[in-house]
Design a protein around this nucleic acid. Structure first.
Lengths: 198, 198
DNA sequence: ATACTAAATGGAGCAGCGTTCCGTTTCAGG
DNA sequence: CCTGAAACGGAACGCTGCTCCATTTAGTAT
């Protein structure tokens, strides 16, 4: 087959082929380990699972946040994209906001320990926090603004505060029947709504 | 002087005097360290601060939760007591609930990392969680029930879920001007309220 | 007052994890 | 094929939680 043109493979060209391969291997292994052991799983475990040394992981992903970010990048982008789509297609901005938050909450609660990590007081996850904000905050802000302009939501709430509040509500052990983050997020949204439609 | 009667000093009689003293020393040191380093501070640090060995701390407080519990016991009890008082004295059950939650939130946000520990996925703090629930859940339930009966609050919310939601909202680094747990808790309470008073 | 016993102590020691460092291996261009 | 550099792996270091045991000390019986 013909050699690749100047517009080569998608990921950075400047890497050696084996490095590129290892990057993928680590990503796959990490995704698997995250499911079973949470995003706090020991690096050694991920390295073993991937069949590489620890240094390899550290070289590709200097901080744990970089690794987690890379693993969930696609899903975060999808969430952001969904927000834009919803705003365009939903019956009302309020509906769009509700549905988007449902997506967001689903994403957080299905990733073992992700919400915990996002708000971790340690700064090991600072970059992850930053990435989430960078990608999702504008979306949330747009949805919120639209709902405010439509008169469905009281003005004055900052998107950052809302997102972090939702994230916080999603923290905790999963599968506790006595605590369903969705119910509390729903309550929060209720509190955000205008008293009457006037 | 006359020997002490059968109704002796308040803390457990079965301990030796030096053990009793050390217990207090550790408690004081721990309280100090918690303020500066959070409730996750290394045991070694607390031991050094108290001028005792680590084993001494482990003997008096087998788990970290026991230590934290002991340090904050009085304040937790005070919070529980305040709940009962408020219910009796406030203008309305809803007012009482609001004021009590303010107290609760204040308590959590002023204790560096306490809210984080309470919901920690690790079970190192399971006993702390249990203690909080044991002492404060009944109070919260009473306040909530009273507010529901007065018609101020929608029925259907479980006290456990509410308390944990509030606790979750208080998680995170302190002193972030962009995130004030109080505002979100207020929103949550708003969502709890009846649409109209009728 | 002295001797005795069991409670209490302290710190060394072991294990787990994060992170770095360096000798060795492997790729890719000449 | 040869060679330089990128990439690699795992040993090594530091920090933390927790335990174990030789030693000290308080309280009591004589």
């Amino acid at each position: 087959m013909a050699a690749e043109g100047p517009a080569g493979a998608s990921p950075s060209r400047s890497k050696r082929a084996d490095a590129q391969r290892n990057r993928e291997t680590v990503l796959t292994a990490a995704a698997g380990v995250f499911v079973t052991s949470g995003v706090d799983a020991p690096i050694r475990q991920i390295a073993t699972q991937a069949g590489v040394g620890m240094a390899t992981i550290y070289r590709h992903f200097p901080t744990r946040a970089d690794l987690v970010t890379a693993v969930y990048q696609h899903q975060i982008e999808a969430c952001a994209e969904a927000g834009r789509t919803l705003l365009a297609n939903a019956d009302s901005p309020l509906d769009a906001l509700h549905q988007w938050i449902d997506l967001f909450v689903d994403f957080l609660v299905t990733k073992h320990g992700l919400a915990d990590a996002l708000q971790s007081d340690s700064d090991r996850f600072a970059a992850l926090h930053a990435y989430f904000l960078d990608r999702l905050l504008p979306v949330c802000a747009q949805l919120l603004d639209a709902a405010v302009e439509a008169g469905d939501i009281k003005p004055g709430t900052q998107p950052y505060e809302l997102m972090r509040g939702i994230g916080n509500l999603c923290i905790g052990r999963d599968n506790d029947p006595r605590y369903d983050p969705r119910r509390l997020v729903a309550l929060l949204l209720q509190g955000l709504q205008r008293p009457q439609t006037s």
